[in-house]
Nucleic acid binder design. Sequence first.
DNA 1: CTGAAAGCGCTTACAG
DNA 2: CTGAAAGCGCTTACAG
Lengths: 343, 343
Amino acid sequence: MNKKKTTNKRKIRRAPTESDVARLAGVSQSAVSRAFTKGASIAKATREKIIAAARELGYHPNLLARSLATRRSNIIALAIANLENPFYAQVAQQLSAQLRETGRHILLFTSSIYDETDPMLERALSYQADALIMTATKASEQLADQFKKAGVPIVQINRESKIAGVSTVWGENYRAGKVAASHFLKKNHKNFAFVAGTKISSTSHMRQQGYIETLAKNNIKNVQIVYGEYSFEGAANAARKLFNSKNPPDAIFCASDYMAFGVLEVARREFALKIPIDVAIIGVDDVPEASHSAYDLTTFSQPAAALAKEAISIVDKMIANPNRRAIRTEVAGELIIRGSTRR
Amino acid sequence: MNKKKTTNKRKIRRAPTESDVARLAGVSQSAVSRAFTKGASIAKATREKIIAAARELGYHPNLLARSLATRRSNIIALAIANLENPFYAQVAQQLSAQLRETGRHILLFTSSIYDETDPMLERALSYQADALIMTATKASEQLADQFKKAGVPIVQINRESKIAGVSTVWGENYRAGKVAASHFLKKNHKNFAFVAGTKISSTSHMRQQGYIETLAKNNIKNVQIVYGEYSFEGAANAARKLFNSKNPPDAIFCASDYMAFGVLEVARREFALKIPIDVAIIGVDDVPEASHSAYDLTTFSQPAAALAKEAISIVDKMIANPNRRAIRTEVAGELIIRGSTRR
DNA sequence: CTGAAAGCGCTTACAG
DNA sequence: CTGAAAGCGCTTACAG
């Protein structure tokens, strides 16, 4: 097993192919192919002989050649705006783990805000990706068009789309806001604020709608709204604005956990506010840090694993039936009550 | 341009190929290939005619077919233990951005601790990856062997390797510990502790060595060492142990920023310690959060961008000369002084 | 500068 | 159950 074989050195060292294995096993090249195709009709003895030969040579089937022949690459393109956002990192991790179960892998397309993303994502087509999953980014109409022409489905996680061909999966954004408002109301809060993400984020909008509409139903109309730009520091600045206002809030709903962390820190450290007595805070996502003792954040969950699962399920359906209309699914979340809200 | 053409519908909708483009442009298929190969000899007029035809058809070169023909996939496999660790997410982001500049992309291989990683990573060979970059994981000897046989270089970021064929890039681990110790000494600290990562982490070991050896040179021998398991909560627990001990430290060096955050929170919230007066803290990495006002952490940087750049540079060298010996490079970091240490 | 042809390493009807 | 052969969509000597 471990003996070094100095024999059969070939001049140019290239990876062994089916033909090499066939030669060693004394069978045809097609037999080798069958040995590695499950469900193919091949005698058990032949297969074993082939597997042994393959192992001896260190043979690994060339998946690119296979893809060329089968027109299925088992590559899923993942466009991810910002890997450094732990929520999306978690989604990516989940996608990767779940896709692996069906032998598929992720080809990564990261982008900064400044990039022209279209030409970049067209490369996914060149790589013959079976599908494109996008997180926190939207497909342009032109891009969607190209993908539709190529028969490659697109599914967006956490972003709406008005484009006909684009499928979407998202969390319960409206309900997140609604539930947050209800919870605050139940705990007798009086002054409400909302820390939004960005102005263009449909996700943030929906959360805001659920929040203010629920408050409005309870005759609360003056909800302060500030923008945290979906970042810790942005939210920290927004929080400073809120706490310095003439009417500082005692209940703050934030469109993401990360922004909630920023608000929480500023409240505690810069304004010496007690949480949840002086001010209560609710986030959205339930990232791992939310449960850390440092934050102990009440939050409306947006389960990365479920989002990933649903996205993959949509991909599978679209591949199975390419003429199918885009699929839009909502994934349920729930309010996880922790120490940043009153008991 | 935007008119819908209902003509030339083919029965089975498949992506257009070079032959399709050739037919439309009235040239040979090889001419089309040349039009998309830079440096190929082709008349300007021909090329333009071809590009126009390609655009009309929505042609995207099939990179898998190209890879098969050229034996270069332009795919780099990235094995990443834990994408949710922001430092490694940052490294992944950097790698992705930098590789894109040379038209290469990342095929993602995530793993949980429980996985058998070898069979998973062998798939990188099947995908004909041009190289394998690993972060926070080590290649087994068998894996390294297989890759060497296939002529595919492996480079590890942030993990040592004793295996001959494996290249490595790492930060200045020993120096991180040394500099942290010196800084504490300069600020007149008396009681020192080290929050290590895991027992098996060579990175953590090196940092520890630099720290305790520097302290030892200054006649400080009793350094408390606890394990934070490279996690926020693990470090929080370790910190509780330290602050509850008979001789609580006034200077704590942590093998990662994330652990430093855990320590910092526990110090502040559970033990009401003032930072940096009662206890000073230094981390390693300089993740984005380190500069947040919540933490304002003094830390020894480990620049993700530089690590990524160096890793790619090694990959390129190894590909250019496959018989070359493994390359091992250290990437410089520096102490970033912030508010968690005394002025 | 251009085209015809072989080859990259697979899969998959087809015939036996 | 097995092999010979065509084809997947490219690149690249070779000849002109």
